[in-house]
Design a protein around this nucleic acid. Structure first.
Lengths: 143, 143
DNA sequence: AAGATTTGAGACTCTTTATTCTTAAATACG
DNA sequence: CGTATTTAAGAATAAAGAGTCTCAAATCTT
């Protein structure tokens, strides 16, 4: 599995918020309901994004979460690293510690190319790019 | 994590066997010792490769495991799918069931390209290619 | 035949991830 | 002030992955 379940949920929720029309905070309950997730579980995941400075939250009536910055300034890699950590973009495919230029594993060179491409994809894609490309055209966030 | 720990171990062991000079079966105990793994655990993992027809095994003294086919005819993807299953090369990055051409998730198009590249890498790379490229040049399989 | 070696199979434990539940804190509104 | 709403925090539970242990089956050697 490329991303953990928590990370999948976090990305989907972040995209949901990016695509949300209304100004102001979106209640987690609404997101979880629309995306078919447990509200409790999603709350926990989104707290990580809040702590990472990607989201901001507000308690009480009319509260919820919102992007802490414009969607155009949130790259996917921030969400992934806030939840799953940076390992995916750093680790050796065979799990060998210290695998690198100097002591490469047999797969190092090939995997590095793909790993860098993957990192670039996540680093250069922002929430608003995905939100924009998803308007209308049958793209969906829920199962 | 891209590959499970079991899969990492399975790949490393398969590579070890491919690079093994001697004819005949290699005892799992020797592999596990050289690669720094638990023999019991490795045995369990290699059984999956034996059942998948990638390895053959032989019990008793002078027993062990060996490739069931020439290393030039074992693609990495066979090892990965025998242990982790085919999900990595099929699944939606956001975990949405039914994500595809017809109902793409926002990341579908971008991820599909990388996923296909990854699948191609695993499908076109064989054990002997890695073994050959690893002779001498400081490439290693153990931590 | 007896004993040593090595894989096969399955139960078992431990750790991590996933998920749920409970309580507290902040906010809005009457 | 009191109550409803909503996130925060952390305990508790469930499920999956990782790793260990025990015993059985096959094979070789003596």
């Amino acid at each position: 599995m490329l991303l953990s379940k928590s990370c999948e949920y976090g990305l989907r929720a972040a995209l949901y918020v990016s695509m949300s029309e209304k100004e102001g905070y979106v209640p987690i309950r609404v997101i979880s309901s629309d995306l078919g997730m447990s509200a409790h579980f999603l709350t926990k995941i989104l707290q990580q994004l809040t702590k990472a400075g990607i989201l901001k939250s507000f308690r009480g009536p009319n509260g919820g979460i919102a992007l802490a910055r414009p969607a155009s300034q949130v790259a996917l890699i921030e969400v992934v690293e806030a939840i799953d950590g940076p390992e995916l973009f750093r680790e050796c495919m065979l799990g060998l510690p210290g695998c690198g230029e100097r002591q490469p594993c047999p797969l190092h060179n090939k995997w590095m190319i793909e790993r860098e491409r993957l990192a670039a994809l996540f680093a250069t894609t922002t929430l608003d790019q995905l939100a924009d490309s998803s308007e209308g055209v049958g793209v969906r966030l829920a199962g």
